[in-house]
Deep mutational scan, measured.
Amino acid sequence: SRSVIRSIIKSSKLNIDHKDYLLDLLNDVKGSKDLKEFHKMLTAILA
C-alpha cells in the first residue's frame, strides 16, 4: 500500500533529497497498477 511504500522510503539509507524526491513522486502516482510499478522501481533502487 501507499503507506507501506512511504515507510520504506523514510526508513531507507538514501539521503534526504532523494527521499523527498521519491515521496513527491509517490504523491503523483495514481492507480494500483502505477503503485505496483513504483514499488518495483523502489525495490530496484534500494537493492
Rank of each mutant, 00 (worst) to 15 (best):
L42M: 05
N15D: 12
K19G: 01
R2I: 14
I8A: 06
L22C: 03
I5M: 05
I8E: 05
V29K: 04
Y21C: 07
L42S: 00
S7L: 11
H18N: 06
R2W: 06
H39N: 08
V29W: 04
I9Y: 00
S32T: 13
R6D: 05
D20K: 15
I5D: 01
L22Q: 00
L22R: 00
H39M: 14
K36A: 14
H39L: 14
D28W: 06
N27H: 07
I8H: 03
Y21E: 08
L26F: 03
H39F: 15
K40M: 10
A44T: 11
Y21G: 03
I45S: 03
S3H: 11
N15C: 11
V29N: 03
V4F: 07
H18V: 15
K30Q: 10
K19P: 01
I5H: 00
N27T: 08
S7Y: 06
V29G: 02
K36M: 10
A44M: 10
L35E: 03
S1K: 12
K13E: 09
S3F: 04
K36I: 13
H39T: 11
K19W: 03
A47Y: 05
V4E: 14
K40R: 12
L35F: 06
G31F: 06
L25H: 03
S32D: 14
L46R: 01
A44V: 11
S1I: 15
R6N: 04
V4P: 02
K30H: 13
L42Y: 02
A44E: 10
E37P: 02
S12F: 04
R6F: 02
L26T: 01
S1P: 12
G31A: 06
S1E: 13
A44Q: 10
K10R: 15
S11N: 15
Y21Q: 06
L14V: 05
S7G: 11
S12E: 02
K10M: 13
K36L: 14
S12N: 03
V29Y: 05
I45M: 12
D34F: 08
D34V: 04
D20P: 00
K13G: 13
R2S: 06
D28F: 11
L25F: 04
I45W: 06
K30T: 09
L25T: 04
L42Q: 00
L26C: 02
F38P: 00
E37A: 12
E37M: 09
H39S: 08
K10A: 15
K19F: 04
I5S: 02
F38G: 00
D24V: 11
L26K: 01
H39Y: 14
D28V: 08
N27E: 08
L46H: 01
K10P: 00
K33E: 15
L23T: 04
V29D: 01
F38R: 00
L25I: 07
L26S: 00
D17Q: 10
T43L: 14
N15M: 06
I5E: 02
L14Y: 02
L46I: 12
M41N: 05
G31W: 07
N27P: 02
D17R: 05
T43W: 08
M41K: 07
S1V: 13
K13Y: 08
I8Y: 03
S12K: 01
R2V: 13
S7V: 08
V29P: 03
I9Q: 00
D34G: 15
L35T: 02
A44F: 06
T43E: 14
H39R: 10
L35N: 01
S3P: 07
L25V: 06
V4L: 10
A47Q: 11
T43H: 08
G31C: 07
A44D: 09
N27I: 05
D28G: 12
N27G: 10
K10V: 14
K40Q: 09
L14N: 02
M41D: 04
H18R: 05
R6W: 02
L22D: 00
L42N: 00
L46Q: 02
K13L: 07
L46D: 01
T43Y: 07
S12H: 02
H39P: 01
S7T: 10
S32W: 11
V4A: 14
I8R: 05
I8Q: 06
K19M: 10
S1W: 14
K33I: 09
H18Q: 12
D34I: 05
K33R: 13
I45R: 01
S11T: 11
D34A: 15
K36S: 10
I9V: 04
E37H: 08
V4C: 11
A47C: 08
M41I: 09
Y21R: 09
K30V: 13
R2A: 09
S12D: 03
I45H: 04
I8V: 07
D20F: 04
S12A: 06
L46T: 03
A44P: 04
L46K: 01
S12G: 04
K40D: 12
I8T: 05
K19L: 04
K13D: 12
S3L: 09
V4Q: 12
K10Y: 05
L25A: 06
L14P: 01
K33Y: 06
I9T: 01
D20S: 09
N15L: 08
N27M: 11
S11D: 14
S11H: 14
L26D: 00
L35R: 02
G31M: 06
N27Y: 07
I9E: 00
D34E: 14
V29T: 12
I8L: 14
K19H: 03
K33S: 09
K10Q: 11
N15W: 07
N27A: 12
H39G: 08
R2K: 12
D28K: 15
D17A: 13
S12V: 03
I16K: 12
M41H: 05
K10F: 04
L35Y: 05
K40I: 13
H18K: 06
G31K: 06
K33M: 08
D20G: 15
E37T: 08
I9G: 01
K40T: 09
S1F: 14
K33D: 09
L14K: 01
S32N: 10
S32L: 13
R6M: 09
N27W: 04
H39A: 11
D20N: 13
L14H: 02
V29S: 04
K10I: 15
L14S: 02
R6H: 06
D28A: 14
K13P: 10
K19S: 03
L25P: 00
S12C: 08
V4H: 12
D28I: 09
L14C: 04
S12W: 03
K19T: 03
L23H: 03
L26N: 00
L42P: 15
A47K: 11
T43V: 10
R6G: 05
S32E: 15
K40G: 06
S11P: 00
S1Q: 09
I45V: 08
V4G: 07
L46W: 02
D24I: 12
L25G: 01
V29Q: 06
L14W: 01
K13V: 09
